[in-house]
Amino acid sequence: MFDTATRSDKTATLYRMVMEEHVCPYGLKAKDRLEREGFTVDDRWLESREETDAFKEEHAVKTTPQIFIDGERIGGYDALRAHLGEDVSTGEDETTYQPVIAIFAMSFAMSLALCLLAFGTVLTPLVLTKFIAIAMCLLALQKLQDVESFSTMFLNYDVLARRWVRYGYIYPFAEGLAGVLMLGGLLPWLSGPLALVIGGIGAASVIKAVYIDRRELKCACVGGNSKVPLGFVSLTENVMMFAMGALTLGLLFA
């Protein structure tokens, strides 16, 4: 990792593809990152496929961009980030909670904005219920981007989907429908039981897979390509749905 005090007098040489039909996005990122770190960038364009292939052959590399600092080849954009001391993803098996954190944070912000618009204040219990409803909608949207991939990952742990495979295809639509109805306060006789059932089955599935069977799995809560570990976050999502279903039915029959 470089000392920032001496970085300003350093020069980096960057080779990147800049063609009429294609400008390499990682090359742009590398140039921006180097400049933000105080480097003077010798920006060298590879302006044709032939020029790019010749460069790769000359330096025995498979990809561009390529960054050189003080005559030493650093590598591509990820190698540059690692060279500058950043944590870089090491592979497909790496886990992260970032997608769930982003969805929950955005859901809460939207709930605050909605309640402020509707009631003139955020100091209302509806902030919590609208937050859960919005989160259900956004989580369903993630799953609906690729229902096939979601259903495949879902089959790894959901107890009902393993007995009835079609449930894995129905689940995202059911979650989204329940979320929209709860957000608008519509058809509580439908949204309540729907959230209660899918939340209850989901919670039971997570408890069995993670806390009883001790399996290490990825959660399908944010879609079929999720790197979120199955565990507490997944359980929380399902418990929230179950609680919303119970609350909706409780208010309906109160």
Results as ranks from 00 to 15, higher is better:
residue 65 P to D: 03
residue 148 E to L: 06
residue 41 V to Y: 05
residue 208 K to C: 06
residue 138 L to Q: 05
residue 226 S to M: 06
residue 27 G to Q: 00
residue 6 T to H: 15
residue 227 K to E: 14
residue 169 Y to C: 11
residue 156 N to L: 05
residue 173 F to E: 00
residue 68 F to C: 01
residue 191 S to H: 01
residue 141 L to E: 12
residue 109 A to P: 15
residue 151 S to G: 04
residue 217 L to C: 11
residue 157 Y to R: 02
residue 62 K to Y: 13
residue 103 I to P: 08
residue 48 S to H: 00
residue 118 A to W: 13
residue 120 G to S: 08
residue 179 G to R: 01
residue 128 L to Q: 00
residue 212 I to E: 05
residue 113 A to I: 15
residue 18 V to L: 04
residue 1 M to V: 13
residue 42 D to T: 00
residue 49 R to D: 03
residue 118 A to M: 14
residue 187 L to K: 10
residue 226 S to Y: 10
residue 241 M to H: 07
residue 62 K to R: 15
residue 32 D to R: 02
residue 76 G to R: 14
residue 202 G to D: 01
residue 196 L to D: 06
residue 40 T to V: 13
residue 131 F to H: 01
residue 38 G to Y: 06
residue 197 V to H: 00
residue 33 R to E: 03
residue 72 E to I: 12
residue 88 V to I: 06
residue 162 R to L: 07
residue 117 L to C: 08
residue 200 G to L: 07
residue 72 E to V: 12
residue 11 T to P: 03
residue 107 S to G: 03
residue 217 L to Q: 12
residue 63 T to G: 08
residue 66 Q to N: 05
residue 233 V to I: 12
residue 202 G to N: 04
residue 139 L to G: 09
residue 71 G to D: 03
residue 111 S to I: 00
residue 152 T to Y: 11
residue 74 I to Y: 12
residue 177 L to W: 00
residue 106 M to I: 11
residue 89 S to R: 09
residue 184 G to K: 07
residue 183 L to Y: 15
residue 23 V to T: 08
residue 231 G to L: 09
residue 51 E to K: 10
residue 9 D to R: 15
residue 102 A to V: 15
residue 252 L to W: 13
residue 23 V to G: 01
residue 45 W to L: 14
residue 61 V to H: 14
residue 48 S to P: 12
residue 166 R to M: 11
residue 85 G to M: 01
residue 150 F to P: 07
residue 180 V to C: 05
residue 148 E to W: 06
residue 206 V to E: 09
residue 35 E to S: 08
residue 121 T to W: 00
residue 196 L to N: 04
residue 230 L to I: 13
residue 91 G to H: 02
residue 33 R to T: 13
residue 201 I to H: 04
residue 20 E to S: 10
residue 114 L to K: 08
residue 25 P to N: 05
residue 213 D to E: 08
residue 95 T to F: 10
residue 246 A to M: 09
residue 11 T to F: 09
residue 39 F to A: 10
residue 213 D to G: 02
residue 47 E to M: 09
residue 108 F to H: 03
residue 75 G to R: 11
residue 61 V to Q: 12
residue 30 A to I: 14
residue 49 R to K: 13
residue 209 A to I: 04
residue 135 A to N: 02
residue 107 S to Q: 04
residue 212 I to R: 03
residue 167 Y to S: 08
residue 85 G to W: 01
residue 59 H to E: 01
residue 4 T to W: 11
residue 36 R to F: 08
residue 99 P to N: 10
residue 80 L to Q: 02
residue 104 F to A: 11
residue 60 A to I: 05
residue 133 A to V: 09
residue 130 K to F: 04
residue 185 G to A: 07
residue 110 M to S: 11
residue 153 M to T: 14
residue 146 D to C: 07
residue 26 Y to I: 02
residue 7 R to S: 12
residue 108 F to R: 02
residue 16 R to N: 05
residue 209 A to D: 04
residue 35 E to M: 07
residue 100 V to Y: 15
residue 228 V to K: 05
residue 219 C to P: 02
residue 138 L to T: 02
residue 237 E to Y: 07
residue 78 D to P: 01
residue 76 G to Y: 13
residue 98 Q to S: 12
residue 34 L to N: 07
residue 223 G to Y: 08
residue 67 I to W: 11
residue 87 D to C: 00
residue 235 L to Q: 09
residue 207 I to A: 14
residue 195 A to F: 04
residue 13 T to G: 02
residue 142 Q to C: 14
residue 252 L to K: 06
residue 223 G to C: 06
residue 123 L to M: 12
residue 244 M to G: 14
residue 140 A to C: 01
residue 243 A to G: 10
